[in-house]
Nucleic acid binder design. Structure first.
Lengths: 187, 187
DNA sequence: CCTAACATACCAACGGGTCTGTTTTGTAGT
DNA sequence: ACTACAAAACAGACCCGTTGGTATGTTAGG
């Protein structure tokens, strides 16, 4: 892999695991055996530019992945449950959730850096758009689909936070049992 | 106010606004005109001890506040909606949400410091306990009450994160329209 | 041979934390 | 009521590792 991609991959993982401020440039560099010169060659604006690049990549990956799941399942319910299953598997395997959220970065940086906030915001919008579209094909009204898409996003994101905080997959498992009923009622 | 309380109050606000790593000791000290000597007199273990003290205080305040709201309303639905209203007001007034969440600290520190993670976890448990108790008095089954309490916690916490990220109160407003239906269906 | 892609030494600023010294306060004895 | 004194409550200089960032030098590819 080329140096730039290697840098992005390594930084993405570290940022997701530990947040932004908790990861130093030297740590990233050491983790992938790249020197500072190479980093500043590819990212002249330094750490924040690297972060934003990571967020964009992550955004694409997550969006693609969710889209794939949603195309594999007929109903929103099946797709969401499958997605949550994957999150749970991810969590139980790694002890943390990487690849589906950057909540740590959101809450750490949203108020500190406008470019970062915008990059984070984009992910949530993408996710909601996918949910929304699927719901529309199932016959939900536009408003209903919007509201449900929002609730799905917030409850999953919140559940991820609780899982991390409580070191348990229970929050995700629990909301998975309730979300179907919301879908049914508001159709 | 005595120096220690002043320190805790100032630090609590700053930590909630900007997270943990984004706030330096000097910033806290300057904000309340206290010197480093005084800080390390009251908190010999430094910044992290100060943070944990802040979290404990915040935990009590939030719990007390939510309990008050829940005792003022007959149904869980009314109480939750009132609570969300307060959050929205809080957000629209200050542009951020302080006093009801420390999501920034959770996601930033939960994986870095076990004592901090435990302190954060306690808040979520308290909130869920309040919801759970109220639901039980309304006649929900124990399992149902637990699940709903969890969903309320996750969706509200997630909505707060989305509000901050999108700089808009819409997420909270939207979930407020859907949560009542969950309460009704799962009774 | 020129430019992109590095490597490495270096830097100033800032971080949390410690040290030593001073003031204030509470208290016991006479 | 006054003194003595110890302990708590501060004040502020200082320390040193780390931080992100830069400057200059070297290598490799077209």
């Amino acid at each position: 892999m080329d140096t730039k991609s290697l840098l992005i991959d390594t930084a993405t993982t570290l940022f997701q695991q530990k947040g932004y401020k908790n990861v130093g440039l030297n740590e990233i560099l050491k983790a992938c055996n790249v020197t500072k010169g190479a980093l500043y060659h590819h990212f002249p604006n330094g750490k924040e530019e690297l972060l934003i690049t990571c967020l964009h990549g992550l955004n694409e990956d997550i969006t693609t992945d969710i889209e794939a799941i949603f195309s594999r399942h007929l109903s929103t319910e099946d797709a969401i449950l499958s997605m949550i299953d994957k999150l749970i598997g991810n969590f139980e395997k790694n002890g943390t959730i990487i690849g589906y959220t950057f909540s740590s970065i959101v809450s750490e940086m949203a108020t500190m850096s406008e470019p970062v906030r915008i990059a984070c915001s984009a992910l949530y919008e993408n996710m909601q758009a996918i949910y929304h579209e699927k719901l529309m094909t199932e016959g939900y009204s536009n408003e209903s689909a919007s509201a449900i898409a929002m609730l799905l996003t917030t409850s999953i994101e919140g559940a991820i936070m609780l899982c991390i905080t409580q070191k348990s997959a229970t929050p995700l498992k629990t909301i998975a049992t309730l979300l179907p009923s919301i879908l049914k009622v508001n159709k």
